[in-house]
Amino acid sequence: MINKNAKLFACIFALAVLFSWTGYVAVNSNTGETVEFKITGYDPRDLLSGHYLTYTVDFGVLESRTENRRAYLCLDDKTVYPQKPSSCALGLAGEYYKWNKAFNHRGIDRFYIPEEYAQRLDKALRSGKHDAKIKVLITKNGAAYVKEMYFDGIAVREFAEKIK
């Protein structure tokens, strides 16, 4: 027979951790600096969280001073370093692929969209005819959150309505 207090503890534990995490994400995703990146895209679906646009972010890397897979992109001088330089005010930790000289920060390469708009927005992104960008908020500790997506300078919601 399981102690009734154990059941209560199990409920409180699950909800306390879940809500704390939600609160942390909510607060963290609103404190930092915003930066815009160009994007190009492909592939649109997740069984649990729904439809989204996945894209490749163009970080505009100018130079690399590392050959390591794990790297740090300083956004001040657009240079990839093996780790965060003390002089760098704003940047992102991620992976650097030396074969195509590309930097990737996992976590900002998708944007969730309602099912009804998924197909046409994906088509618009793939076509390459529109100037697509994302607005990313970067916190002091290097976490990044996608805040908005733009097509030709128009916020994605308005753009989706426009091409309806």
């Binding site: 879940l18 939600t22 909510a26 969280s49």
Partner: peptide, 17 residues
């Protein structure tokens, strides 16, 4: 709980492995 994790990921555009 699983749904809520998905919901938070969706709202804040989180993406992990």
């Amino acid at each position: 709980i699983l749904g809520y994790i998905g919901l938070v990921a969706q709202i804040f555009n989180l993406h992990s492995a």
